[in-house]
Simulated assay, not measured.
Amino acid sequence: MSRPLIVVRPEPGLSRTAARLRAGGAAVTQWPLFAAAPVAWEAPDPARFDALLVTSANAIRHAGAGLARLAALPVIAVGAESAAVARAAGLAVAATGDGGVAQALVAARAAGFLRPLHLAGREHVDSGQPTVIVYASADLPADAPAFAAAAAGGIVLLHSVRAARRVAALVAKRGGTGIAALSPAVLAAAGSGWDIALAAPLPTDAALCALALERAIDRAAGAGDKTA
Rank of each mutant, 00 (worst) to 15 (best):
A107V: 12
E42G: 13
V78A: 12
A47Y: 07
G100N: 08
V106H: 14
V54I: 12
R87Q: 10
A120Y: 06
A110E: 15
A108R: 09
A110C: 09
G79C: 05
E42D: 14
I76C: 03
R109H: 12
A77Q: 02
I76Y: 02
A43S: 10
A59T: 09
A108L: 11
E81Q: 13
I60M: 02
A80R: 15
L52E: 01
T55N: 03
A83P: 03
P46T: 05
A120G: 09
G97W: 05
A102Q: 14
F113V: 04
A84S: 07
L117N: 04
G100F: 05
F113L: 11
V106F: 10
G112N: 11
F49P: 00
V106G: 12
L105T: 07
A107P: 12
A71V: 12
G112R: 13
L70P: 12
R87M: 09
G66N: 01
D98K: 13
G121I: 07
R109P: 10
G97Y: 06
A88M: 04
D98W: 12
A95W: 01
L70A: 09
V75M: 06
L70R: 13
R69H: 14
L91R: 05
L119K: 04
A37K: 13
L105M: 13
G66I: 03
A47T: 14
A40P: 13
A111P: 11
V93L: 10
L114R: 15
L70F: 11
I76M: 01
A110R: 15
A84L: 08
R115P: 03
L67R: 03
D50W: 04
S82W: 04
A71N: 08
A92C: 12
A51K: 01
G64D: 00
T55F: 02
A51R: 02
P44Y: 05
A88F: 02
R48C: 03
L119H: 04
G79M: 06
A92T: 15
L114A: 13
V101K: 11
G64F: 00
D50V: 01
L70Q: 11
L91Q: 06
A37C: 13
L119M: 08
I60F: 00
Q103W: 09
V78M: 10
E42A: 15
A65L: 00
N58H: 10
A59S: 12
L114Y: 12
W41R: 09
R48D: 06
P38Y: 02
G79Y: 05
P44M: 06
V75R: 02
R115N: 05
L52Y: 01
V78H: 07
A108S: 11
A84N: 02
A92H: 14
S56H: 02
E42T: 15
L53R: 02
A40Q: 15
L67F: 03
L70W: 10
A57F: 05
G64K: 00
A40E: 15
V106Y: 09
